[in-house]
């Protein structure tokens, strides 16, 4: 009797423990949201909301006239992200398809962990590669005088997004029921047709989720981009011009900004906009992933 009560108590304690953990995780998110929101709001006492979103001039320390427009850096952020996806999606899906359908299982057992280790390389190391290796190559290929531009940033972000895209795409390709491909092969389709017309469409939601997660990583990445894009705050004239993303702007300026000034609040406002963007990207990928898991069951 006594023992039973004790185990009941234990059970309840464990439940409470896990509940508290999940509450903490949620509270952290909500806390960050409100911290960003409330620190961002004072910025708009002095900055016109219209100027903030539509002006391309960001120059808070200007001796002439302070400028607080985030359009250039928002466009820059999307440029490197989309550039990264253009590179990473074909390669990522190609590798995933190879691993799940073509490769010998021994090759897969070796290659997949290696791809996943790629995700663990510190961003500063990848940035260094961008400076010493990719920079000069890009300059040579495109005939520019230097390699500090959006192409370099895109390339490195693609490398960083690849592990996510490959790993999740491969999982979702593997999760396609065997009966699908067996039926397709039985109807006379070859392996290529089976892969392209049956397996890929069947695992599309998983692949899209993989791409969205990779995109979330690319948007929020700071160090790598900051090291190789040159950080010129001008509105980008193309992929070969030097750009400065939202993350780089915050990282560069927050260290020295005097506290509780318009500049300080404006940086939090940039952070808030970034938070909203990544939040939606992650939410969309989550929704898609859920849909796909439901169908699996």
């Amino acid at each position: 009797m006594k023992k039973k009560r004790f185990s009941n108590l234990k059970e309840r304690a464990i439940k409470v423990f896990f509940f508290t953990n999940s509450v903490f995780a949620t509270l952290a998110l909500v806390g960050i949201f409100f911290l960003l929101l409330f620190t961002a709001i004072p910025a708009f006492k002095e900055i016109n909301m219209g100027e903030f979103f539509t002006s391309t001039r960001w120059n808070p320390t200007s001796p002439v006239k302070e400028g607080y427009g985030i359009l250039s850096m928002v466009v820059s952020t999307f440029m490197v992200t989309i550039g990264a996806l253009v590179i990473a999606i074909p390669i990522g899906i190609g590798v995933a398809a190879y691993l799940s359908d073509v490769a010998h299982w021994r090759v897969r057992e070796i290659v997949k962990p290696i791809v996943e280790i790629l995700a663990g390389i510190p961003s500063v190391v990848i940035g260094f590669l961008g400076i010493v290796l990719f920079g000069p190559i890009i300059a040579k290929i495109f005939g520019t005088s230097n390699g500090l531009n959006a192409v370099n940033g895109s390339l490195l972000l693609a490398i960083m997004a690849l592990p996510t895209i490959i790993s999740i795409s491969e999982d979702s390709l593997n999760a396609v029921p065997k009966t699908y491909s067996e039926a397709s092969l039985g109807l006379g389709a070859n392996r290529w047709q089976t892969l392209i017309r049956v397996k890929l469409p069947a695992s599309l939601s998983g692949i899209i989720a993989a791409v969205m997660l990779g995109m979330g990583r690319a948007i929020g990445e700071t160090m790598t981009v900051m090291m190789v894009t040159g950080n010129a705050p001008a509105f980008p004239k193309g992929f070969l011009s030097s750009i400065r993303t939202m993350t780089a702007t915050i990282a560069i300026e927050l260290g020295e900004v005097p506290y509780y000034t318009t500049h300080y609040y404006a940086l939090f406002a940039v952070g808030f906009v970034l938070f909203i963007i990544t939040f939606f990207v992650n939410m969309i990928s989550d929704v898609i992933l859920h849909k796909y898991q439901e169908r699996e069951q």
């Binding site: 001039r57 120059n59 200007s62 001796p63 002439v64 250039s72 400076i131 920079g135 000069p136 300059a139 005088s145 230097n146 390699g147 500090l148 040159g230 950080n231 010129a232 705050p233 001008a234 509105f235 011009s241 030097s242 400065r244 560069i252």
Partner: peptide, 27 residues
């Protein structure tokens, strides 16, 4: 006391500028 060109690359330190100039023929 005028603004820098928005196209100026904002480098992290003296050493990075030196490295950039060594590689950039138009720098």
């Amino acid at each position: 006391k005028q603004d820098y060109s928005a196209d100026m690359k904002r480098m992290n330190g003296n050493a990075q500028i030196v490295e950039g100039i060594i590689q950039d023929r138009a720098g």
